[in-house]
Amino acid sequence: MARPAIPIQLRNEPENNLPPDQSAAVADVLHRLKGVPGALLPILHGVQEALGYVPPDAVHLIALALNISRAEVHGVISFYHHFRSKPVARHVLYLCRAEACQSMGAVALEAHAKKILGIDFHESTADGAITLEPVYCLGNCACSPAVMLDQELHGRMTVEKFDSLIQATRQTA
């Protein structure tokens, strides 16, 4: 006697939990870039540029578009220091921790920055103005110590210059 066939349960695609605007931004990036060779990094850059971070809910959309597993996408996001899974403050301040900057007082500057901002690396100030990130060389080694605010480089940083930079940054949107 033949056994009754057991219907195969097709696992539902995970729901798209992204807010509509984020979802549209991700869809736009995928549409533009999913065909390029080695597309994942360009796509992640595109998403992070549009949204400021790569929302965990975007992972399955990216995986689906590239026909790879979510684990692979997550693995790439977590491998690279540049990609973030959490939203950031309005501005990101990168503090160079590398040797050339160390030789010109970067360690003291780092301590000062953390104290003034009241946060550690990878954290954001309570007012949502600044996220602090370490960076390992900005290529400004002849003008150490260096910091980069969003995409703007600042050299020969002193405590005084740092404080006025922070003050000016807090006042901008």
């Binding site: 590398a98 040797e99 900057c101 390992y136 060389c137």
Partner: peptide, 11 residues
């Protein structure tokens, strides 16, 4: 990918 501290010739 000029990552070495102290180098900036590529840049």
């Amino acid at each position: 990918d000029e990552g070495d501290s102290g180098t900036y010739a590529d840049r």
